[in-house]
C-alpha cells in the first residue's frame, strides 16, 4: 500500500519555566493510505505535538515529514497552506475549537471560502451536503456552537475538516469528552466516512479501547517516544511493551464480577504518571513504573537501568520478523501472535 505520510527522526523540544523539555524524540512513523493509525499514550506523551508537527502548525527542531511524496520542510508558506487542504485536523475540545460568534453554517463556509473550493452560489448547497454527511439536521445551520450538544459539535468539527476534501485527517481525542452512547455514534460515523471517501485517519487518544475500534495500526507513545507499534489486532491480543499492557489493564472492565486489584504504583513514582519526565540517565524511561521489571531478577534489569531501549522489530532473531511490529523494550512480553 502506498505511503501517505512518513515521519523520520522527528524531534521537538520546548522550554518551560527555564527547563528544556524534549517533547518528541526521534519519532519514526509511517501512515499508509487507507490504513487508519491510532496514536495512543497518556497526556503529555507528545501525541498532539506530533500531529501539529506533521501539519507544520509547529515547526519541528529536527527530522522530516513527507506527505504524498513531498518533503514539507521544503515548502513555502503558501504552498504549505495549499497542501493543508489535503491534511486536516479535528482539534480536541469541540467548544474551544469553534468560533463562538459564528453560526454552524458560517463555520462550515469558512474553510470552503478560504480554500476557494466553491463560490458563493454553491455555498448553501455544499454546506447542506456536509451537514447531511455528518448526520446534522439542516435546520441547525443557524445555530451557534453553545446551543448544540457536545456530540453535535464534534460532528460539526468533522464536517469542517472534511470541507476541504482531505486525504489525511488527524483527530485529537475525538470522543473523550462525549457520553458513551454518543461516542459509539461518532465512531460509527468515522468508520463510514473512511469507507465512503478516500480518507485515512490518525486517531489520537489516551483510551486504547476507543482507538482499537477504528484503527488498523497503533503506535503507543511514552514520554515523546514510540515504545510499541503494530497492527491493532496483534496489540490487542498480546501487547509487547509493559506500558501497553498497563494501558490495557487500566481500562475499567464492564464486569462487576471481575475486579482485579491493580498493581499499586508507589506514591514516590506517581509524578511520572503526570507526564513529568523523570530523568533516568540513559536507561529505560518506563523503568520506574514497569511491573515486568519488578518481577525480573536484578541482573536482568541491569540493562534497563543503563541502556535506553530502541524500537526494534518484534522477533528480530527470527528469519522473517513481523513487518511493522516493533517494540522498544529489553524484555518484551511474550505475545500470542508471535
Amino acid at each position: 500500500m502506498t505511503e501517505l505520510l512518513r515521519v523520520r527522526d522527528l524531534s521537538k523540544s520546548f522550554s518551560l519555566a527555564g527547563r528544556r523539555r524534549e517533547v518528541l524524540q526521534g519519532i519514526d512513523l509511517t501512515v499508509r493510505r487507507g490504513l487508519n493509525l491510532g496514536l495512543v499514550g497518556e497526556s503529555g506523551s507528545g501525541k498532539t505535538t506530533l500531529a501539529l508537527c506533521c501539519l507544520r502548525l509547529i515547526e519541528p527542531d529536527a527530522g522530516t515529514v513527507t506527505f504524498a511524496g513531498q518533503d514539507l520542510s521544503q515548502l513555502s508558506a503558501p504552498a504549505m497552506r495549499r497542501l493543508r487542504r489535503r491534511m486536516q485536523m479535528v482539534f480536541q475540545g469541540s467548544l474551544e475549537a469553534l468560533d463562538p460568534r459564528l453560526t454552524l453554517g458560517q463555520a462550515l463556509a469558512e474553510p470552503l471560502r478560504i480554500h476557494q473550493i466553491v463560490g458563493d452560489a454553491q455555498m448553501a448547497s455544499r454546506t447542506a451536503d456536509l451537514l447531511a454527511e455528518v448526520g446534522l439536521a439542516a435546520g441547525l445551520r443557524t445555530r451557534y456552537p453553545h446551543e448544540i450538544s457536545g456530540g453535535q459539535r464534534q460532528r460539526l468539527g468533522i464536517a469542517r475538516a472534511l470541507a476541504t476534501e482531505p486525504r489525511l485527517l488527524f483527530l485529537d481525542e475525538p470522543v473523550s469528552a462525549l457520553d458513551v452512547s454518543v461516542r459509539a455514534q461518532i465512531l460509527e460515523l468515522l468508520e463510514g466516512l473512511g469507507e465512503r471517501r478516500d480518507l485515512t485517519m490518525v486517531f489520537i487518544s489516551h483510551d486504547l479501547s476507543t482507538v482499537a475500534q477504528v484503527a488498523d495500526h497503533m503506535a503507543v507513545m511514552f514520554e515523546g517516544r514510540i515504545v510499541e507499534e503494530g497492527s491493532t489486532r496483534r496489540i490487542c491480543r498480546g501487547p509487547s511493551h509493559p506500558y501497553t499492557a498497563d494501558l490495557f489493564a487500566a481500562i475499567p472492565k464492564a464486569d462487576p464480577r471481575h475486579r482485579p486489584r491493580r498493581v499499586r504504583v508507589p506514591a514516590a513514582q506517581l509524578s511520572i504518571t503526570s507526564g513529568e519526565p523523570v530523568s533516568n540517565g540513559g536507561g529505560c524511561p518506563y523503568l520506574g513504573r514497569c511491573v515486568r521489571a519488578a518481577a525480573l531478577a536484578s541482573h536482568e534489569v541491569e540493562i534497563c537501568r543503563f541502556e535506553r531501549p530502541v524500537l526494534r522489530p518484534l522477533n528480530e532473531s527470527r528469519e522473517q520478523p513481523l513487518e511493522g511490529e516493533r517494540v522498544a523494550c529489553h524484555h518484551p512480553m511474550r505475545s500470542e501472535a508471535t
Binding site: 461516542r183 459509539a184 465512531l187 468508520e191 482499537a212 475500534q213 481500562i251
Partner: peptide, 13 residues
C-alpha cells in the same frame, strides 16, 4: 455502547 476489545463488532450507541 461500550467499546469491546477483541472485536465482537462495533459498539451500538
Amino acid at each position: 455502547s461500550l467499546p469491546r476489545l477483541g472485536g465482537d463488532g462495533p459498539p451500538q450507541g
